[in-house]
């Protein structure tokens, strides 16, 4: 796939209270943002299990956004700090798998930041377009045999 007409697929794990509501606000305010992102709602960014991230990459995501409330604003007090810790370690580990650290993005988007959500989505899409497709092999045994 040439990177010009590469249309990345992004997955967003958004916490209900801030980021999902922020995304909702972007919607109700009729802000347009790049349609590449698919959103999965979780109660808190602290619910984002690294398994989900890896699963999403495996299934074909070119980039993954984890988004929660700003530090100190988590509806559950500190879930976003757990997300931050996991993000930093996971990002480091993913690089060992050849997955650029830019492909796993963590952002704090409050319920009021519809515009920020719009920006993050647009910017992230651009960034992933530049990085190109991830091309994770899907699991057919023959595919793995030979590079």
């Amino acid at each position: 796939m040439s990177s010009e007409n590469f249309d990345p697929t992004l997955i967003g794990f958004l916490c209900t209270w801030c980021s999902y509501t922020g995304a909702d606000l972007a919607g109700t305010a009729r802000m347009t943002y790049s349609p590449n992102i698919r959103i999965i709602r979780v109660m808190c960014s602290g619910r984002v299990d690294p398994q989900f991230v890896i699963k999403a990459f495996k299934e074909g995501a070119d980039g993954i956004l984890i988004s929660g409330c700003h530090p100190g604003d988590c509806h559950y007090k500190e879930g976003n700090y757990k997300a931050l810790r996991r993000h930093r370690l996971l990002r480091k580990m993913l690089e060992q798998f050849g997955i650029e650290k830019e492909r796993l993005r963590l952002e704090w988007v409050s319920a009021a930041e519809g515009a920020k959500f719009q920006n993050v989505c647009d910017e992230f899409t651009e960034q992933i377009k530049e990085l190109g497709p991830l091309n994770i092999m899907k699991g057919d045994i023959n595919e793995y045999r030979e590079a």
Partner: peptide, 10 residues
């Protein structure tokens, strides 16, 4: 429990 799910992912 308020259902944040932090423990679950841990």
């Amino acid at each position: 429990c308020k259902g944040c799910g932090t423990c679950v992912s841990a």
